[in-house]
Nucleic acid binder design. Structure first.
Lengths: 220, 220
DNA sequence: ATATAATGTGACTGTATAGTCACATGACCG
DNA sequence: CGGTCATGTGACTATACAGTCACATTATAT
């Protein structure tokens, strides 16, 4: 938890520190990210940083929680249809992908805690977020299976895992590859995705949902 | 490329260095991995390491190529049925997953180059391996679509991306989660997966193939 | 036995980092 | 105005690392 001093800071200064820190931690792994660099760019003294945060972990944890919270509220804002599983899924993916494309640094920050080689202090945070997202999908699948809306001969637990896998940051990577843009460019200069319209995104997502819905078999 | 001196080394010594280096680079990210640690554990001098390799990059690149080569030959050894797409896919995934479970460190080493935050010198290596695997799957899908064995209303490029996503290291993570084993334990002590039989793996993979083949719709 | 080439060595250099601390500056209040 | 508390500071400590180099050891050949 940041110290009280940090919250007492004038809005503008606080935001500047947050923005620069997010940039640093999104471009670099936790261990490579440099507080020295952040304070230099923010124009404050090293010691000040330690008036605001306990240590590097504290800052990083704070940023990750901020990112998770922001994404959650973004998705919540795009209210979901409750009646049809696939329609709901489509909206969920659409919102998630749009968020990731609009906020590459925050998206990467969240993705970075999923790194199995991350610091051990992150495992807990990681496990928590992961379990939360799985539980949600698992319940959704189970419910729809019981209502006969989904085939029952697949394991809901495994399926939740698969769907979450399909909907993660992987989609962003797909778009980047299609445009021949590398991840680093995307993080430092998000405008490179100008070429992708909402219709593009929607078309791709509909394709994925079709894949999840009907599978690949059949020469239709 | 390692220097000639490295290849002149007695088999045992060379293998020891490779094994310890693989362990170091699989547990840590590239930047956190420490040559000092490797040489200490190997009982050789720092300077010796630089008689064998140009620098840290050289060693890492060598190990990654070794891992890729080993996996390729493992999968090749499990010859594939050419007639049915889904049967072929099943065997491909089966071999890949078994390899990953049997060689966690090598598996992680290969996965580590897919890290979008990896060093820039890795991007090339990464792009190469990635394109290769996509091309293979893309051709397979296109071919089968043309033969009417797969539905034609999905984009083969996107589908190749999705399938590769489903078949990556994610499956290993699924098993670990099922057994409540964390990734670090798995890397340092692979025996934790004793609880998983070949039948288990096969059952899960068949489920995934079913998912890919038929999708989720229909209350069967 | 001697010369030459190949290997091995570990102290050392330069560099970067997280985190600390004694002190300086500012804000607020009686 | 003076005193007190909150905030800011940057030189400094301890640590770690990749990579180097002058020298030592060993193997090979003559």
């Amino acid at each position: 938890m940041p110290k009280q001093t940090f919250f007492n800071l004038p809005e503008e200064k606080r935001q500047k520190i947050i923005d620069l820190a997010i940039e640093e931690f999104s471009i670099n792994t936790y261990s490579k990210a440099s507080l020295s660099n952040v304070v230099a760019r923010a124009g404050i003294a090293k010691g000040s940083m330690y008036q605001y945060f306990e240590d590097k972990k504290d800052l990083y944890t704070y940023l990750v929680e901020l990112a998770a919270q922001k994404k959650m509220s973004y998705i919540q804002r795009h209210k979901l249809d409750q009646d049809d599983f696939f329609q709901m899924l489509e909206q969920l993916v659409m919102a998630g992908t749009q968020y990731n494309l609009e906020n590459p640094k925050l998206g990467q920050l969240m993705a970075s805690i999923m790194d199995p080689m991350a610091e051990s202090f992150l495992r807990e945070l990681y496990a928590g977020l992961r379990k939360q997202s799985y539980q949600y999908m698992y319940n959704l699948i189970l419910e729809n299976q019981q209502q006969g809306k989904l085939r029952k001969d697949v394991d809901p637990y495994l399926t939740a895992h698969l769907i979450n896998g399909l909907l993660g940051n992987g989609l962003v990577e797909y778009f980047l590859e299609r445009l021949n843009v590398n991840y680093y460019e995307f993080l430092t200069n998000p405008q490179v995705l100008q070429g992708i319209s909402n219709e593009d995104i929607e078309r791709v997502i509909k394709d994925i949902i079709k894949f999840i819905r009907n599978g690949l078999e059949g020469g239709k």
